[in-house]
Amino acid sequence: MTQNKSKTVMDKDGIDRCLTRIAYEILEKNKGIENLVLVGIRTGGVYLAERLQKKITAIEGTSIPLGILDITLYRDDISTAKKKPRLGKTKIPFSLDDKKVVLIDDVLFTGRTIRAAMDALIDFGRPKMIQLAVLIDRGHRELPIRADFVGKNLPSSLWEAVSVNLVEKNGMDEVVIKEEN
């Protein structure tokens, strides 16, 4: 039996600094908060979106709308899945028409989640544009998708698992890369 090698690649302060920088980059690219909305992808993306919302509020002095998106119903493997994944609630209580939407997720990997998320968003309205912010980009894209805002590029092998642990769901903030059996 082999011991799983696990390595912390980002700690609490590292995550916080990344999010602060991303918040400024979002404001810089969009020239402020006009028509700007955030949408977090369940579950990790939601907590990061809430933190980004707080940071943007602190910088600009005004809060911007935050939505929650569950992409399960848009997954490309859903009709062949024998056991259906648990469905979470989607809450986008505002119109997306003509809005600049920043989609937020914890890890960008194959890009399939983001494809599903974009299809879902377009069913909600016609955003002016969709941008993507992720804490970790681990590579291995299977679709032509890239992020506009990246916390950290983390080269990884397909045999490794990258997990973003956050206080809100795992009790501590850290990014861990681990070899899978």
Binding site: D70, L73, Y74, G88, K89, T90, K91, A120, D123, F124
Partner: peptide, 14 residues
């Protein structure tokens, strides 16, 4: 979770 789908403008998921 499905209640929300019926409140959308486009009441359909794929």
């Amino acid at each position: 979770s499905f209640l929300e789908v019926s409140t959308r403008k486009i009441k359909k998921v794929p």
